[in-house]
Amino acid sequence: MEMTVGSQSTLPNGSVNNEIMPRLGYSILAVIIGFFSICGVILNVTVIAVTIKHRQLRQPLNFALVNLAVADLGCAMFGGLPTTVTNAMGYFSLGRVGCVLEGFAVAFFGIAGLCSVAIIAVERCIVVCRPVGSVTFQTKHAVMGVMVSWLWSFLWNTPPLFGWGRYELEGVKTSCAPDWYSRNPGNVSYIVCYFLLCFALPFSIIVFSYMRLLWTLRQVSKMKMSEVGNTARAETQVACMVLIMVMAFLLTWLPYAAFAISVILHPKLYIDPIIATVPMYLTKSSTVFNPIIYIFMNRQFREHAVSFLLCGRRVRSAESMLSEEETTVTTVSKSNSRVSPS
């Protein structure tokens, strides 16, 4: 049975598609995506606000973190919140133009955020693994990384606006995305390029950068025998952070990528629309996971962000509930810079 989920048109006003899912199901989805969207807006606005307020946070190494917050905020506002409304209504009510705009916005901000995650991995790898005496990480490098993330996303998400690929309804028909289902040769060529360059490439960069970082820390721990305790602690902290980052990436993006490549490779494959919706919503949940993992587990951001969320109050118990693991690479970088390369 051929799958045609992505190519059907919107329903008339006020019509709930009960053939896909009962009205209650849409309401449940509205609550879920609404929760993640509102939390995503709050957390990412917090990150941006505290960065603007506190000058010490406006360091080059934090540019990509803030850029990730901006991308996640855009994804939550232009993707999550509209999807909450359409789910609450039980059908996509924004018309064809609304579908294209919503699909483009979600893809644009989503891929920009994904590229930001890859850039964060590269920057940390450079800072920790650079040879002694090499050029330090500067503002121009950070700005270049931010620009690359947006330009790359813009480059690969605008073609559907001009006929190479297209944006269509997805899953249970309450949101739009690149059309994974059309077997038109032009659309297939776009989707293959999109998958390789916007999913596979960032994932490869993330894995390579963090594996390189861990290998460097391992070498440092072997050479600094006089400070084994401190080095081992730093290595353990970064290793745990790397594991969390990679697992979060896999949780939020791998199911969607696997779903997309399955549809591309097996055009006759039938996937229930409700099941197809799960990976789409997992990617949208990254707007909440990203600020928690990349920002709130960073001591600098954490202290200011918690104070901001508590309206200026500093509560020790609230701080103690957060992870004490450090995610900044400054300490490790300094430790590495005192060790001559072998």
Rank of each mutant, 00 (worst) to 15 (best):
E2S: 11
S9L: 13
S9G: 09
L11E: 02
L11W: 03
S15T: 14
V16N: 00
N18A: 07
N18C: 09
Y26A: 12
S27R: 12
A30D: 02
V31T: 10
F36G: 11
C39P: 05
C39R: 08
L43T: 07
V45W: 06
I48D: 03
A49L: 13
T51W: 15
T51I: 12
I52D: 05
K53C: 11
R55Q: 15
R55E: 14
Q59E: 11
L61F: 14
L61S: 13
N62Y: 12
N67P: 05
A69Q: 01
V70K: 03
V70G: 03
D72V: 03
G79Q: 00
T83W: 07
N87H: 09
A88H: 03
G90V: 10
R96S: 05
F104R: 00
V106L: 04
G110T: 02
L114F: 08
C115T: 05
S116M: 13
I119E: 01
C125E: 03
I126N: 03
V132N: 01
T139A: 13
M144N: 10
V146W: 14
L151M: 15
S153T: 05
F154K: 02
W156N: 00
G163N: 02
W164L: 06
K173D: 07
P178T: 05
P178A: 04
W180S: 07
S182I: 05
R183I: 14
Y190M: 00
C198E: 01
F199Q: 09
A200M: 10
P202S: 08
I205G: 13
V207W: 13
F208H: 04
F208D: 01
Y210E: 02
Y210I: 00
M211Q: 14
M211A: 14
R218A: 02
S221T: 10
S221E: 13
S226F: 12
S226T: 14
R233E: 12
Q237K: 14
Q237L: 15
V238L: 06
L243D: 04
V246S: 05
L254G: 01
L254R: 03
S262C: 10
K268F: 09
D272V: 06
V278H: 07
P279G: 08
M280V: 08
K284C: 13
K284P: 06
S285R: 03
S286A: 14
S286T: 12
T287H: 07
V288N: 02
V288P: 03
I293N: 05
F308Y: 13
C311G: 14
M321I: 04
L322T: 10
E325G: 15
N336K: 09
S340Y: 01
